[in-house]
Design a protein around this nucleic acid. Structure first.
Lengths: 210, 210
DNA sequence: GCAGTTCTGGATCGAGCGGTACGGAATCAG
DNA sequence: CTGATTCCGTACCGCTCGATCCAGAACTGC
């Protein structure tokens, strides 16, 4: 399932599979799944088509591996956030992580998941489902964490953990889009701080405020 | 520049150009620019390739016309918002419009601009610039409106109109992404109301709150 | 040195892309 | 009816897409 190991016998591999995957991740991050052609990918990876297929399977599997690398690297802030001791800290780490990840120097701006998933023809259906699954995993983590916070009295008893999660993910998505549109890190940082100033948000299902 | 009018002499056009453009808009909305192939488009429009080229020019011009239709129709809430009498009303109309537009029954969820612009190869560079220009127009409208509100004392004197605009656009983008991810309208409505509860946001450039 | 195995680069595949050429169909003015 | 004009459907263009074939290069064990 993982990257094909270079065998002990036979001609040794002429490139570093880890560096090649890093390069592929950046191309997918910049151009999305369909927007990244094989020619783009192998040029950035510095290897030939044949080597890519031998080492990574095909384009779809290459993307899966690049996404795993992304989730464990630049986008690991979700897992870090839920480990925080208080709900407010969870939100703080999550949003600051979103800002940092979306404006990493030397990397494309915004979020790989968003860039790759929003659009596409029928053939990238599997990719969109893969990315939806990944986002659902993050959502589930946050929801359980906020449920725990409610149980512990860390959040008001009437808090809806699922809705609060959606609120936080929505802000994170907005940050990623603005970063992709060219917003500088310091402005996004100020915006994230402003959002955190009114934590927790007033998400009442009962009354309509307007 | 606009849709080629059907001439007075010769064989009359066998389809309604307005209905065809509406169908094309939906396909672009659903699949983005590159994700919508000519075959998809003409099938949805119910016309042949030749008729599309004769009436709309080419794929890029068809998209431009679909975008204009989108901006004047489902996405006209930006222009409506800046006509409101107070800054708070501007934000309210803008966010409620974003929620409504992103969850219109019978239309794709989310925002056409986002779906079409986030990714793509080099050939869709012009399209991304076109969409960036459109978003910049909306930004400029809001910024000027908020500047006026500051001048009129409707907003605190230390408010940065550009940053406040970015904040509002960021929330709108987040709503669109969440809608595209399947969030129901009522949840997004609650989230938008929660954002509006803490209006105006505390966007101080001077002090860092953390 | 020699077989066996693995990696590599170039040529190439079928499919789908956006776009076009062309002849027939439908309508106008006379 | 005739000729001019315009619309429409089919077949096709060159190109790029993801993916594969194949011969040769580079390494290990013997």
């Amino acid at each position: 399932m993982n990257v094909q190991k270079s065998a002990s016998v036979g001609r040794p591999r002429g490139f570093d599979a880890d560096e090649a995957l890093e390069s592929a991740m950046r191309v997918f991050w910049q151009n999305g799944y369909e927007g990244a052609s094989l020619s783009d990918l192998i040029e950035a990876m510095g290897i030939s088509r044949t080597s890519m297929y031998a080492s990574f399977g095909n384009k779809e599997e290459l993307f899966r591996k690049a996404l795993t690398r992304y989730a464990d690297g630049p986008a690991s802030y979700g897992a870090e956030a839920v480990a925080e001791p208080a709900a407010r800290d969870v939100a703080t780490v999550f949003l600051h992580g979103a800002v940092r990840s979306a404006t990493l120097p030397g990397y494309p701006t915004g979020c790989l998941s968003l860039r790759a998933s929003l659009i596409g023809g029928e053939d990238s259906q599997l990719i969109r489902e893969l990315l939806a699954d990944w986002r659902d995993e993050t959502s589930a983590m946050l929801r359980k964490r906020f449920q725990r916070a409610v149980d512990e009295g860390d959040l008001p008893a009437e808090t809806d953990p699922a809705l609060l999660t959606r609120y936080l993910m929505m802000i994170g998505n907005g940050i990623a889009v603005q970063a992709a549109a060219g917003a500088p890190r310091d402005e996004l940082q100020l915006i994230a701080d402003a959002v955190l100033q009114s934590w927790p948000p007033v998400l009442s299902r009962q009354q309509d405020e307007r």
